[in-house]
Design a protein around this nucleic acid. Structure first.
Lengths: 403, 403
DNA sequence: GCCATTTCGTCAGGGCTATTTACAAATTAG
DNA sequence: CTAATTTGTAAATAGCCCTGACGAAATGGC
């Protein structure tokens, strides 16, 4: 940043104020123009002109008069439109595909999913199957009067900075896959992002409110153990987009060697494969026996619920090791809360005792541990919401209703 | 943030554009109005009016005509004023006090320091001694035509959110000290910040350029081992302001118990006290023998330079343990670079071999390791620059020259 | 030395944005 | 029914930046 700091023009100001109005309604609920003006600190006049633009663009809708009981003329209630733009989110998991659509109000308006063995697959056919699902969801919401404003795809891997390419997805066996030229291109310019990141953003946007009140470390386990650092309402991505690799934080000085090149990585003790091995199962075999998102976790959870001592011991150990890694992360980040998402949310009942014990022992006062309520849906919902968020952030550019 | 997003009014836009002009000159060097306009993307007309305000406020100064050799009328060169506002920075160390003043151009215009045994001291007398130094520096820069715009104090401890109080400074033995009512109050509303944070910000603002190109983890050791996470040009402070406690990241699963309540903390193996013990010295005794900022590090560095095998072995071990902690931090943050500051910069020649070896072993490709060139001056300079930065960020509010 | 060319800084006019002020409309309280 | 209160809009105003034009001050070729 030698020079050229961000430009601050009048259009910029207008754009931000339009976004401010939308977020005032999104965060604070439906309200009259005057109430919105109070919330964002502009005058009623200014808000009126902003609202006019947003009504014309189909982002806001008037929802009748709001009789509050107090004296004075009642205001016309403004709400985010449920027939305006919507976001399409897709997910490419190792053994399933899913698509959903959410409207500006955050409601899921359509969804579709199929099992699909994507590990070591060719991108073409997988994307073709996904495109079918997208078409299905697209048609459904279009029939409901919504206009898809974009498509974001959650992938278990690294994504290029412009979000157009999947740079590397080890568990799929993909390298350098261009989404914009494949079968997905038909609907909207498709964009990709990492599934763990989208899961964390979902937590920030529609999950536990604690994520909105301060910095948070969001831990999720799907195949590996990932995490995401939410600071100041944004995601810390790091230099190459690799930030959050909690699974490779060392928890034993001279422990098991790991595929990452290190040794004693958390993943060797608390990862899915390690848990399966610890209860005497072959990881590859277990995946074949229990395909689908979260299936192994559900299986382990089931055995834990039945009181299986091997599983309970394995989960206890994993919680302890997770506690060591999170002790380090907490000292480094001083987060407002630790959020367990994905498979960890499912297994939380049996991880939490040893995890909280270890954190308490080492930290004295540990940040509150929160279990996500989004579960395995996080990445998919995050993808769809990323699209609607982009519309809210820059209403007139992306949000204009088709003529 | 239920409601009330940031307000975007015309005054805001103006303020940012004023700041953009100043930063264009600060980062890109002196330049004509037309050149500044090119840099920040505004028109020459707009820049002219902005510059008029900044000249009137005494923040910019015209420095004659710039004959470039190219055809065309030469522009009048604009530079940051060296007689305008300046920043006062102060530092309360465990065994010294220091004050300096920097002008808008970043030059140190005055400084003063004294040794002072502040460990376990009463705040009153210490602040009184510091106030004397401040007065001295203040008078010196005032004589040079500068106007101190504020005073920031670097303290080895935790500071309240409004920067008015020292909440806790264990190494000084201070709790809840209000700076605004003490002897410092005479000069300007004094504000405090943590010394490690200010050291990292100094690195960001005037240190290695790598800190300005991406996220960076800045590691410093004064008494403990601290660090600071610089992301997106800002400092990640965490929930309570405790972020960056690298010294208490566990590096041994069942290691030495630590005063923090944990065990196996990095500080037990790579901290100053641990190093001194490892070479057979009593830490308290060593502090008495070698008072002053960085004195123990300098002493150890001296013995290392002489080839003392005990010291070399201790530093080698510290480098390895630091490498383990930084492996975890790197996986978590994926920083653009790791910067060694403070005492670590002094000892870097003997820490680096084992540190880089450990990082290379565990990470494959580690982020570049950079040794700070600011050394022990970082926090003090950061404090002074924090004041001038605040002036640049909001020129007309804080920067107006006294009438 | 003189003129064309180029660049710099400024002035006048205009557009966009939000604010101020005023007012009609719609409700409650008495 | 009247007074009080709140809402939404209209007209006028102020602030900020942009466009277009112009004089000023340099270079370069003749």
């Amino acid at each position: 940043m030698t020079t050229t700091r961000r430009l601050h023009t009048q259009q910029d100001m207008r754009r931000r104020n339009l976004a401010a109005v939308l977020y005032a309604v999104a965060d604070g609920g439906p309200a009259s123009r005057a109430r919105v003006a109070d919330r964002i600190g502009l005058t009623r006049t200014a808000v009126s002109t902003l609202v006019d633009d947003l009504l014309a663009a189909g982002l806001l809708a008037e929802a009748g008069l709001g009789h509050s009981g107090a004296p004075g003329r009642p205001g016309t209630v403004l709400a985010l439109s449920d027939r305006g733009p919507c976001g399409l989110g897709a997910e490419i998991g190792v053994d399933h595909l899913a698509v959903c659509a959410v409207d500006l109000r955050g409601r899921v308006r359509a969804r579709a999913a199929v099992d699909s063995a994507n590990r070591g697959s060719q991108p073409g056919p997988v994307l073709a199957r996904l495109a079918e699902l997208v078409t299905h969801v697209h048609d459904e919401v279009t029939a409901a009067g919504l206009h898809p404003a974009g498509l974001r795809v959650a992938v278990p891997g690294l994504v290029s900075r412009d979000r157009a390419h999947v740079v590397q997805a080890p568990n799929l066996g993909w390298r350098d896959v261009d989404l914009t030229t494949g079968p997905l291109a038909a609907h909207a310019p498709p964009t990709a992002d990492n599934e763990a990141n989208l899961g964390a953003l979902a937590e920030l946007w529609i999950g536990d409110p604690v994520c909105r009140t301060g910095d948070v470390l969001h831990i999720s386990a799907e195949i590996g153990i990932g995490s995401a650092i939410l600071t100041d309402g944004r995601l810390l991505r790091g230099n190459r987009g690799f930030a959050g690799e909690l699974g490779h934080v060392p928890v034993r000085r001279r422990g098991e060697p790991c595929a990452c090149g290190g040794r004693g990585c958390l993943e060797q003790y608390a990862g899915e494969a390690a848990l399966l091995r610890a209860v005497g199962l072959d990881p590859a075999r277990a995946v074949a026996d229990h395909p689908g998102p979260g299936a192994r976790s559900a299986y382990l959870g089931g055995r834990a619920r039945d009181g299986d001592p091997d599983v309970l011991r394995a989960l206890r150990g994993a919680g302890t090791d997770l506690g060591i890694a999170l002790t380090g992360a907490t000292h480094l980040l001083d987060p407002h809360a630790l959020v367990l998402g994905g498979a960890l949310a499912v297994l939380a009942p049996w991880l939490l005792p040893s995890l909280t014990a270890e954190l308490g022992r080492r930290l004295g006062t540990a940040p509150p541990l929160v279990v996500s309520r989004l579960g395995a849906d996080g990445p998919l919902l995050g993808a769809a919401h990323a699209v609607t968020r982009a519309v809210l952030d820059d209403p007139l550019r992306t949000g204009a209703a088709p003529a």
